[in-house]
């Protein structure tokens, strides 16, 4: 599997994300936000957590208009797999690759802790190894993770089995306890929790590794 990890000014989980891919044997190319093209032969693009451009205007808003964002949108448009984590999720929403909005946490506070999640679908290259119904624990660390969707959108996400993860104990006021959603073609995943921060016992958890193993399985024939 060949993965690209994008770095924006303020990204701070980009190296962690690269390490998480590499730990499963993936080849990783690091890509700077000013690039206008992605490397050839990619299987997946990762948009990391952290911040981007000071998160001026709205979180992810400027990054979603950076030169590389157009290349990522084109890659997704061709059916490429894209993983956006935390700020990366905000960028995917601002870029229009995923629906809804991520607002300031309902409790106003920055939330930074391990949190219980329920895997809602195994029908994606990201979630297959977790399996539907699995209870997992991943870290969250965000100020603007309050997923906001109107009733029509929630009904559509539910009806199309596009809610990937739900919080067991909602930390930020997200509509329908949504922590992660898939695109209509199931190849773009946006998630607020950080799987790349839970891939080794030294980090305090290993539940995140299955996401990267799932991707390896999807792109390396057994």
């Amino acid at each position: 599997m060949k993965a690209a990890v994008i770095t924006f000014p303020g990204s701070n989980c980009d190296r962690d994300l690269a390490v998480a891919f590499e730990a499963q044997g993936a080849r990783v190319v690091r890509v700077w936000h000013k690039e206008t093209e992605l490397p050839a032969g990619l299987d997946v693009v990762g948009l990391p957590g952290g911040f981007s451009f000071g998160d001026y205007l709205r979180c992810g808003a400027i990054a979603a208009r950076a030169p590389i964002a157009q290349a990522v949108a084109a890659f997704a448009g061709r059916g490429g797999h894209v993983l956006g984590i935390c700020n990366g999720f905000q960028v995917l929403i601002e870029a229009g690759l995923l629906p809804g909005a991520l607002m300031r946490n309902a409790g106003i506070k920055f939330v930074c802790r391990n949190i219980g999640l329920r895997v809602e679908t195994a029908q994606s290259a990201f979630t297959a190894q977790w399996g539907a119904g699995a209870d997992i624990t991943l870290p969250v660390a965000h100020h603007d993770g309050n997923y906001t969707a109107d009733a029509d959108l929630v009904a559509r996400l539910r009806g199309e089995d596009r809610v990937a993860l739900r919080y067991r104990d909602n930390p930020n006021g997200s509509t329908d306890d949504i922590a992660a959603i898939l695109s209509a073609n199931r190849r773009v995943l946006g998630m607020m929790p950080h799987p790349e921060r839970a891939i080794s016992p030294a980090q305090g958890g290993t539940d995140g590794a299955a996401l990267f193993r799932s991707l390896m399985d999807a792109f390396v024939p057994a």
Binding site: M103, N105, A106, G107, I108, N146, T148, G173
Partner: peptide, 10 residues
């Protein structure tokens, strides 16, 4: 109708 947590804090 959209909850404004920052406005609430103010």
């Amino acid at each position: 109708g959209v909850l404004d947590p920052q406005g609430e804090a103010v």
